[in-house]
């Protein structure tokens, strides 16, 4: 119990994984692989932010792409209009996060008082509206054609960008971990478990839900900014439902309410997407890899509602209990026999 938290077993494992990830681009000198892993990490950030909503607060949002898109557009527009330096990049990330924060605050206040299915549809509608605005506002966004821009000079080296993304991911992970284990995060979990009860215990649940949605929105904007820089291109596809669905799939398949789960989900989905669409050359059926996703996803919702990480965690704790029982069992038996 009094063990320093930093040295717990799971944290040591995480630390080793991070070290391996840092070493990875120097060991494997493959450009495509570095880009793929960068992509995985960026979507990992997005999926983690979605987990705050779905996993910890228990609300299904279909509008998460709008925050991601705002981040992407902020960075893209600022980098193409001003000089493309590191300074502008950092400022653009902060501006994107601010706008996303304000927007998610307003949207949250308006929508979170509704029940879950109304909320889901309303977020879908608002993010649809934003998509329409982006399509029509061609002078700024260039619509569906999108535009390319120069990334800061330093990021020409893919490895450096990869390391920056990795560092941000670690920071986001630690911050979110602290956030969900704070008293505030505990209230969010209570809202997920039983909102009525939490309300009757005297918590203003709307207030807590809005905080969760602001945090998730801000982090999603960060992921969007990184995504835009990694592609050096942006178009309206960053605002579409598909981004939200990706985040949703990653969170569900990885494991809701675990934070690690969405990262695992991001690894699974991004690499599957990469390799399955590669297979399409030999087997035409793989051009429709979304079908496999859909099926796996449905099966996951029915049979593994906790996802990969959640299932492992449950199995592990069951095994632990069983082991403890085995330790105790002979004792109780001997008591019986002595009677």
């Amino acid at each position: 119990m009094n063990k320093p938290i930093l040295l717990s077993r799971s944290n040591i494992i995480l630390f080793i994984i991070v070290l391996a990830l840092v070493a990875f681009p120097f060991v494997m000198d493959s450009r495509t692989l570095t880009i793929l892993v960068t992509q995985i990490l960026i979507f990992g950030i997005l999926a983690m932010s979605y987990d705050i909503l779905l996993g910890y607060t228990g609300i299904v949002s279909f509008g998460h792409a709008m925050f991601f898109g705002i981040g992407a557009y902020c960075t893209a527009i600022m980098l193409s209009d001003f000089e493309s330096t590191i300074g502008v990049f950092i400022v653009s990330i902060i501006v994107g996060m601010l706008i996303a924060g304000i927007l998610s605050f307003i949207v949250g206040l308006l929508t979170l008082r509704l029940k879950s299915h109304f909320f889901a549809m309303l977020t879908m509608a608002i993010s649809g509206l934003l998509l329409v605005v982006a399509e029509k506002w061609r002078s700024v966004t260039k619509g569906n054609d999108g535009f390319t821009f120069k990334a800061p000079e330093v990021f020409k080296d893919r490895v450096i960008f990869y390391l920056v993304v990795l560092a941000l991911l670690v920071i986001v992970f630690i911050v979110l971990k602290r956030f969900v284990s704070s008293p505030l995060g505990r209230v969010l979990i209570a809202v997920r478990e039983n909102e009525q009860r939490t309300k009757s215990l005297g918590f203003k649940t709307l207030y807590y839900k809005v905080i969760a949605s602001v945090v998730a929105g801000v982090i999603a904007a960060l992921a969007g900014s990184l995504y835009a820089v990694s592609l050096r291109f942006v178009n309206t596809s960053v605002l579409t439902m598909e981004i939200t669905l990706d985040a949703l799939l990653m969170t569900i398949i990885g494991g809701v309410g675990t934070l690690i789960g969405p990262l695992v989900g991001s690894v699974v989905i991004e690499s599957a997407q990469h390799y399955l669409s590669g297979l399409a050359r030999d087997f035409p059926i793989f051009e429709r890899w979304i079908i496999f996703f859909g099926i796996i996803y449905i099966l996951a919702v029915i049979f593994f509602p906790k996802g990969i990480v959640g299932t492992i965690q449950t199995k592990y704790s069951q095994w632990k209990i069983k082991r403890n029982q085995l330790d105790v069992a002979p004792l109780s038996k001997s008591k019986e026999s002595s009677k």
Partner: peptide
Amino acid sequence: VQQILITLGFMLVLQEMIKV
């Protein structure tokens, strides 16, 4: 929540099955 998620997944399958 699960209903929303699962029917959405089935929607994807139906839509892609059309293409197949």
